[in-house]
Simulated scan of single mutants.
Amino acid sequence: MDSIRISIIQTDIVWENKQENLRLLHEKLQSLRGTTEIVVLPEMFSTGFSMQSNILAEPVTGTTITTLKQWASIYQTAICGSYIAEDKGCFYNRAFFLTPEGKEHYYDKRHLFRMGQESEHFSAGNERLIIPYLGWNICLLVCYDLRFPVWSRNVNNEYDLLVYVANWPIPRRLAWDTLLRARALENQCYVCGTNRIGTDGYHLHYNGGSVVYSALGEEITSLPEGQEGITTAALNLTTLQRFREKFPVWKDADSFQL
């Protein structure tokens, strides 16, 4: 598919209330029926950035993922975000990408936010995920991963779209705005960043800044600060490939291994 539509849902998350957050999401998905190929939710969309992993965690067979898989099928759109996962006795901040055809892709957040004690309650992932979907290659990362460019490095244009799902508070918004644009420029790809609004259970305040950038670092779409909303961007693969051919910075990139 040469053109693909991606929709950002910028929302206030009800603290540690899965049922209510799923209900609110369902209302929003109904409004998106037939208008988009990918819906992007904030990090830990169903609970907020809670450290109550031993209470809130679910397996991939739990209610949250089971419900989202059903909705992806019903509304014929891929859904991605992250949730609190339990797997073989460990807890993860797990990103998901669920397709309407029933395919499931998961990524466990590598860089855990030590200043918020995330590393004390969750295990870190060690494998990056690149998802093939509708002729596109999509890299899905989570919040604090944004600060570490080596982990997101686009070697030989292995992905076309880089997605960050986040709970990124107001005091560090400058870093969010700056680094999202930088990731688009340095990786010659589209970048989508989805953040929440409102106040969480730790009294941290969020004002969004959800946005989609082109490979030129140009803003394609965004949402107003501090407001719930949905916006959809149309991305074009041919346009991206032509830019990479005309200005092949990627050919001069340094090689490295993690």
Score class of each variant (00 low, 15 high):
E158G: 09
L223S: 09
S255H: 09
T66S: 15
R153H: 13
N126E: 15
I74S: 11
A85L: 10
R110I: 15
F247I: 15
T238D: 06
N167E: 13
N54D: 14
L185T: 02
T36M: 04
K103H: 05
E86Y: 10
A184P: 05
F96D: 01
L216I: 08
L141E: 05
E225C: 03
F247L: 12
F97V: 06
D200A: 09
T67S: 12
G226Q: 00
V163F: 03
D177W: 03
Y190K: 07
S210W: 00
N154D: 06
A234K: 11
N54W: 13
A85S: 12
Q70L: 11
L180H: 08
E245H: 12
L258D: 13
K103W: 00
T66E: 15
C143N: 08
I220N: 02
Q10V: 02
F91R: 03
G116P: 01
I197G: 05
R173F: 12
G62P: 07
P59H: 08
T64C: 12
I170P: 06
E86G: 10
D12T: 11
Q10M: 04
G201K: 08
A215N: 10
T11L: 06
N236V: 12
T178N: 10
S82Q: 05
Y213C: 00
N154A: 03
S152M: 11
R172K: 14
N21V: 00
H105R: 09
S7M: 04
W15A: 10
A72W: 09
M44V: 14
N154G: 02
N236S: 04
M115H: 14
E127H: 14
F49M: 11
Q241V: 10
N137T: 14
C189V: 06
G116H: 12
H203P: 12
E86R: 08
D145H: 13
L185P: 03
S46W: 08
F243P: 09
Y159R: 03
T36W: 08
T199R: 04
T232P: 02
K28I: 07
I38W: 11
A72K: 08
I6W: 00
M44S: 11
T232K: 01
G229R: 00
Q241F: 04
G125D: 04
S123T: 13
